[in-house]
Computed example of a mutant assay.
Amino acid sequence: MVRVVIVDDEPMVCGFLRTILGSAPDIDVVGQAHEGESGLREVIRARPDLVLMDLRMPGVDGLTAIERVNQLPNPPAVVVLTTFDADQYVLRALRAGAVGFLVKSTPPEDLIGLVRVAAEGHTVLSPVAARRLVAASTDRLSAREQARDLVASLTERERQVLTCLGEGLSNAQIAARLYLAEPTVKGYVSRLLDKLGCVNRTQAGLVAHEAGLVDPQVGL
């Protein structure tokens, strides 16, 4: 079972998500809250696999809550709930440790599948969305310079794997592209996260975009 906590200040949104996700036999909504502080308490109480987190809430906002969740031992994956996919708060949330984002208008038939993907540790973020967010960043120049400095310390193979992460590929897809065994790819990804100081694949993928490793023509 995928255990989910929903944190959103709109009761209707919480109710909608609970109804949709509750219809899946392998997803259990184990808690909900309407602001960041109570959301963190629910995460600690329920120990979910995944948190769906709104960003703009009264009291403790989603950005602060994401940072606090990622400071917990064995933190759950956090997926941002947002109304606008170009919102600068989304990029800040990804840099804070969220594994991706869902627009609140996501069709119900897609929502369950995306929650499953996120709970398995994969990125819920298309290359197109990542490019748009990075391009809109107000600190783009400093982020680009920092990313290029980080990438300069990588081996050629590590850069290839990082580029694949920026394209949103899974370990199996990376293995097929680079003619590597899947456990080997897993090892490369773990070392990349350590070298880049990233907490997850999504942050590493953003570094790939900011460093210019991802072909602008690549998209979903």
Rank of each mutant, 00 (worst) to 15 (best):
V214D: 05
R3Q: 11
V218D: 04
G36V: 07
A98E: 06
Y188F: 15
R56L: 03
H122S: 13
S105K: 12
P216Y: 04
Q173W: 05
E10V: 13
S23M: 13
L133F: 11
L178Y: 05
T83A: 15
R18N: 05
A204S: 09
L213R: 00
S126A: 14
A204Q: 09
V29W: 01
A176Y: 04
A175Q: 13
I44N: 00
Q146Y: 03
E120M: 12
A93F: 07
E145K: 12
V43H: 03
A33W: 00
L81M: 14
V7M: 03
R144C: 12
V69P: 00
Q203K: 06
T138A: 14
E145P: 00
Q217R: 13
V51S: 01
V7K: 02
R92P: 01
K195I: 05
L141C: 00
R95W: 13
E37C: 03
Y89W: 03
D49C: 02
L162S: 06
D54A: 06
L52M: 09
D8E: 14
G62R: 08
G97C: 10
P75N: 06
G219Y: 02
L114K: 15
F101L: 10
P216F: 03
N171R: 06
A135V: 12
R177H: 09
R148W: 04
F16Y: 15
T83I: 11
V51I: 07
L50A: 04
S38D: 11
L213K: 01
D139Y: 14
A204I: 12
E67L: 11
L21T: 07
D49H: 14
D149A: 09
L192F: 08
E156S: 13
V90Q: 13
A24S: 13
S23V: 00
G39Q: 07
N171A: 11
T184L: 02
A176S: 12
